[in-house]
Design a protein around this nucleic acid. Structure first.
Lengths: 131, 131
DNA sequence: TCAGTACCTTACTTTAAAGTGCGTACTCTC
DNA sequence: GAGAGTACGCACTTTAAAGTAAGGTACTGA
């Protein structure tokens, strides 16, 4: 049982399914747009935050430290338009709005979270190696 | 009435390992920098291209359609500094330089490829839903 | 000789992303 | 009745990312 920690069994052959996703290399491919949205600085953070459950506007603002109100609004709007985030507004005063993930959003965060975790785990090593 | 079709069996409790990667939400966290590199527009494409094996400069240039020479140079330099890409230059003329992934690079692309594949598979759906 | 290839670098310009600050229309607390 | 909280929208400015264009080297093949 020793150190199972991060012994990722490096799959030297992690290929793209060449027949299907090869198109990302083409300039006009729509996947480029989608990729830009989901790999955007704040997009990643918001998606990951929402993977932990429903959040209100102000909770997200506090969670994603450093985000401005403008960027939060913009990011949420994009993700909502992409069908990744669901916006539920209650017509009360003061306003109460809940954000959560759609099915598609959950599907995506399942892939995003390992990436973020990897970045976190490797960040120090990577930046240290640059003297 | 009963048009709440979007309900989901929320299958993925794909949580962050809260104890470890939670720090990404903090403003000064080094993982933010690393995340920016590996989720950059061209960074993703170059990494995925290299996951298919060694490539020469001009091969990468052709593969990642639309990239400028400046961006290719810059992206490769960043990835090399991050210890994700290996540069092997043969001192011949005309110059011959091969780029490949390091172990760490392979580890990363193993996570990146599912993401890119997902983006490709869902791109049309996502963009169509915005009429 | 003269274009062509391979791998870049530097300088300049354009564009898109992000930040700043203000206003709104309420209500609830001090 | 002053101030804070809530969820934004809008206009403006700053800054960082990206594109454009040109140049450079040391050759090779025509």
């Amino acid at each position: 049982m020793a150190m199972e920690a991060k012994t990722l069994s490096v799959p030297q052959l992690a290929h793209l399914p060449a027949d299907s996703a090869d198109g990302v290399f083409q300039a006009g491919c729509p996947s480029r747009t989608v990729l830009d949205h989901i790999t955007s600085k704040w997009g990643v953070l918001i998606l990951v935050a929402l993977s932990e459950g429903e959040h209100r506007w102000s909770e997200l603002r506090r969670r994603a430290e450093g985000i401005s109100e403008k960027m939060l609004a913009q990011t949420l709007k994009t993700l909502e338009r992409d069908g990744l985030v669901l916006r539920k507004a209650q017509p009360v005063i003061p306003p109460h709005v809940d954000y959560s993930l759609t099915d598609r959003g959950y599907e995506l965060t399942a892939l995003l979270i390992p990436l973020v975790t990897w970045a976190y785990d490797n960040a120090d090593d990577i930046l240290d190696g640059q003297r």
